[in-house]
Simulated assay, not measured.
Amino acid sequence: MALTDSARIPAAPDRVARDTRTVTAGAQQRETPLLPPAPPPAAAEIDRVRAAVWAALSDFLEVQRETLAAMDESLLPVIDEVCAVADGGKRLRPLFAYWGWRGVRGEGPGESDEAVLRAVAALEFVHASALVHDDVMDGALTRRGRPATHVGFASRHGDGALAGDGDAFGVAAAILVGDLALVWSDELLRCSGISPAALARARAVWDTMRTEVTAGQYLDLLRAAGGLPGAQGALTVARYKSAGYTVQRPLQLGAAIAGAGERAAETYTAIGLPLGEAFQLRDDVLGVFGDPSVTGKSADDDLREGKQTLLVALAEEAADDAGRRLLAEALGNPAAGPAEFDALRALIECTGARAQVEERIAERTALARTAIAEAPLAADARAALDALAVAATTRTA
């Protein structure tokens, strides 16, 4: 199945080389290195937004800690787990939402920067909820270099010599942690300080986004059970499980807060859908070929869990009988070991599946970056969104 022709990604601005200045001392000249140049405005602003998002999350979670502690001290591990899941990550969803707002906010007083930052920070709780529930469904063991939530609570069960089945306790606790993160996403958005009118506009996008990501989780479950076969099935899952809620809907959330109209929503769809797909496909590649010391998870996990990604669909289409037997026997087999997983990686490489996915990542990224360059956005937002597009699709974790 030919997915698309490859396209070259427009070259990102080169990193500024370390400059030198010639210094004359008597008859002798020497090269003295200058200090590194200041980061570009887009990079500095992106870092500022990341820091502000974490500050908003930390302030909110501190209040929730007091609330749960007042109920019962035994609830503190729950808040600790939400904090741990929310800590770290690339903050891409709040970043896209914030720059979606900045791109179309126009003139006039509008919403305050501080309130918008708190509002978009709520996306991190939606993401935390999705991560925790996804790890339960996949039976994942680790997340960002630490035990997955259900694994951690199963260990707590054993350490505390509690009664009953520890694994079942861990799964149940993780479901509740994910639910609580989703509840808190609503609360943080509502209490962010954006105006009632902006909140009402945001709710429509917010509700659509949360419906899509939940539906996408089911489609992923269905595909793992044999439904939605082939490459198109993999792309459908990627569209609803990740692509929409990673880029498209956050961008549209920012536009809704700004009070922009349908044209802005369409502009952000043209950017968000191809870029969100490229982001998810990069995630799939890293899940199989990434460096565990960088990604924080084993490169065998996706293969052990039997994730039916586009990589797998394309490999299956191109494989010979022996390759298909290997996929049937090793993919998703918890008893498989390093040799089988290395053989699966070799199969994905030799069938050209990885190369095809890399081509699609490049083509979708180029499409999104072209849409960013042509969009009627504020210049600072255009620069930031382009930087985020490159970062999201060339990342190593």
Rank of each mutant, 00 (worst) to 15 (best):
A346E: 14
L75E: 10
S6A: 15
R143Y: 01
E363V: 06
G158F: 04
E358M: 10
R8H: 06
V104P: 01
H157E: 09
R144Y: 07
A121H: 02
G108S: 04
G254H: 05
F289K: 01
A38M: 10
V53Q: 03
A43Y: 01
E329N: 13
E277W: 08
G170Q: 07
L251V: 03
F153A: 08
A322G: 15
R21H: 02
A353H: 03
A392R: 02
V205Y: 02
E45I: 00
A115Q: 09
V53T: 12
G227K: 08
V357W: 02
V82Q: 05
D220G: 05
N333Q: 08
H133P: 02
W54Q: 13
L385Q: 04
Y218A: 08
G323T: 10
Q64Y: 05
R50V: 15
R93Q: 07
C350W: 11
A278S: 06
M209T: 00
D87P: 00
L326S: 06
D47G: 14
A163Q: 14
V78H: 04
R360K: 07
G254W: 01
G226H: 04
W184Y: 08
L253P: 03
M71L: 14
R21Y: 01
A389P: 02
L311D: 03
A384P: 07
C83Q: 13
Y245N: 07
M71Q: 12
P147Q: 06
Y98T: 01
R18Q: 14
A168G: 09
K241C: 06
D59Y: 03
G89R: 03
A335F: 03
G100V: 03
G110K: 06
R93W: 06
K90H: 10
A335M: 09
R239F: 08
L344F: 09
G332S: 06
L162R: 15
P10E: 11
L34V: 11
S58T: 14
L95G: 01
G100I: 00
G166H: 12
T214F: 09
L35Y: 09
S298D: 13
L180C: 08
A202R: 00
E45S: 14
T214S: 15
S195L: 10
S195E: 11
R369W: 02
P109M: 12
R364P: 00
T309H: 10
